[in-house]
Simulated scan of single mutants.
Amino acid sequence: MDSADIRKHFDGIGHFRILVIGRSNAGKTTILQRVCNTTELPENFNIEGKKFTKYPQRGYHNIEDELIFRSNPGFIFHDSRGFEAGSDGELMVMKKFVAERATATKLAKRIHAIWFCISMTDYERLIMASEEIYFNECNTTNVPVIVVLTKADTLEFLAIEQLIDKDMKIEEAKARAGEVAIQILGKLKTRIETQLAGCKYPPKDYVSLASMNEDHADCNPLLRCTTNALDDEVELQKLVISTQQVNFVLNIEYAVK
């Protein structure tokens, strides 16, 4: 599919638009590649729909830019930096973008979901003060927010360390690591849910993902969670599923529903 074909997807409502938020190294790009079944980087379009012929200079970032993968132009992504730097300016840009796009008159310009990525490698600082401010000040009443717990597989290393600290031999620790990692993930998820439940605009749902950089990685839980979060908006549910024509499991599942 060439750029002209990709550009056609900006017309009408033939795409599902997602805002992706997360700290650096949260694995956002890898997740988007898995969802779109590709290892290539996305093509970048500015707010006017013009493709960048030359990639912007290092450090450039604009939340309005639209990221589209050739392998699946049914999705349009917007990328937002995380708030680890505590930048008030970045938060203001985010709030303005969500306020305008979550209630846009033209459905084609509206964001339909937000994926807020939290890497499990950051288990010692799961939710920072600046991120909690986001859930208290960014009005997401009109768009579902899914918290995506990324890199859940890395918790196995933490599990091994904990088991070895209990004087378990390395071989046995490795054998039990998967089981213990699941328990650790459950506790971390509970901590996040408890902290965000008291916010003014808490997430709609949570989902964990593991090994997204591997060929066997399964992104169905994220797509299923996103679809269910749309509640009774049947047309949007059909839209997100239609972007996954090769995903027979999801297509059959929602066809039955």
Rank of each mutant, 00 (worst) to 15 (best):
C219M: 14
Y201Q: 03
S208H: 13
M212P: 10
S208G: 04
K200R: 06
L209E: 03
C219K: 13
E233D: 13
S208Y: 06
R224M: 09
K204N: 14
C219W: 08
E193R: 10
L209C: 01
L236T: 09
K187F: 12
A210Q: 13
Q183A: 15
V234G: 01
I192R: 06
E235W: 07
L222N: 05
P203G: 08
A210I: 09
T194M: 14
D231F: 10
H216T: 15
T227D: 07
Y206M: 02
K187M: 06
D218E: 03
G198E: 04
K204Y: 11
I192S: 11
L223D: 04
E193S: 14
T190M: 12
I192D: 12
T227G: 06
N213G: 11
C199M: 06
V234F: 15
T226Q: 04
L185N: 07
Q195H: 12
C219F: 15
D218S: 05
L209A: 07
D232K: 05
N228G: 10
K238I: 08
S208V: 06
Y206K: 05
A210V: 01
L236G: 08
E235F: 11
D215R: 12
G186A: 07
C225Q: 01
D232I: 04
G186C: 01
S208F: 03
S211F: 08
C199L: 07
V207N: 02
E214W: 04
V207A: 07
A210M: 05
V234K: 01
A229E: 00
C219H: 14
D215W: 14
C199Q: 10
